[in-house]
């Protein structure tokens, strides 16, 4: 018979425990969010990240080891992006009537997302490496990390900035839109998905199916737009 300490040493070194914890913490956090009536402050992504970071930090486990388990979840970001094609095709008739607003909002939004970082970042004097890693933060995590790496940024820093942007966007979008009395759920969703990629899209789906659909479209389009706008901004302003 081995001791519980030996069991912990064994488990904490295996990917299984970190994968299991990630999924279980998520299930608990989304249950909590539903119980709290989908209050924007009870964001399940934020709650899960705080809880898991606390465990990883307290256990003294290096992030790389946590990620060996959690990567199986992380990997699904790719198929989930492909999956947006399904609601898009199902509701194409409705979406195709809004090509004009979608195009206008995409151009304005993707440029604002990148240039606001350049302007504000220079204002507060962020270091060059941080600034480059910051540019693609409104694109979905996989894309943002790839763009950052291609510009000489640090993908792991970009991942955190991207996820944090997603959380901030998801927390802010509902009160922000209510403040300005925006009742157009296509516009609300599109802004959420463009600013806060998948986390904003997840939030939009909590509010309405229309908002979720347009958020998903914005997330997909901004993934493409950011991979053009961020390198252009880096070349123009950060050389």
């Amino acid at each position: 018979m081995k001791s519980p300490t030996e069991l912990w040493v064994y488990l904490s070194a295996s990917p299984l425990i970190w994968l299991t914890l990630t999924v279980c913490v998520w299930v608990a956090a989304s249950e909590l969010s539903i119980r709290l009536g989908r209050n924007p402050l009870a964001n399940p992504v934020l709650a899960s990240i705080l809880a898991l970071s606390a465990v990883v930090w307290a256990a003294g486990v290096p992030y790389q080891r946590y990620f060996e388990g959690a990567q199986f979840v992380h990997f699904m970001l790719g198929p989930a992006t492909v999956a947006i094609a399904v609601p898009l095709a199902q509701r194409w008739r409705e979406v195709s009537r809004l090509i004009g607003p979608i195009g206008a909002a995409l151009i304005v939004g993707s440029v604002t997302a990148v240039l606001s970082v350049v302007a504000l970042g220079k204002l507060v004097g962020l270091s060059g490496e941080v600034l480059i890693s910051f540019l693609p933060k409104s694109a979905t995590a996989g894309v943002a990390m790839a763009v950052s790496a291609s510009l000489g940024g640090d993908p792991s820093l970009t991942a955190v900035l991207t996820v944090t942007t997603g959380i901030v966007g998801a927390l802010v979008v509902t009160p922000f839109m209510n403040l300005f009395r925006i009742k157009d759920f296509a516009a609300r969703g599109f802004a959420a998905g463009l600013t806060a990629h998948g986390i904003g899209t997840a939030r939009a789906y909590e509010v309405s199916a229309t908002a979720g659909l347009f958020a998903g479209i914005a997330m997909a389009l901004n993934a493409v737009a950011t991979s053009v706008v961020a390198p252009a901004a880096a070349w123009l302003f950060l050389r």
Binding site: W26, V45, S53, Q64, Y66, V73, A80, S156, V160
Partner: peptide, 29 residues
């Protein structure tokens, strides 16, 4: 459609592993 629905319903989960990376950021920020 089923697989897509299941993934999109739990989209937030997929961002959790990258978010936990905040624990490893000390030297940059």
């Amino acid at each position: 459609e089923d697989a897509s629905g299941a993934l999109l319903a739990n989209l937030g989960l997929l961002f959790v592993p990258a978010g936990v990376g905040v624990v490893a950021l000390g030297r940059f920020v």
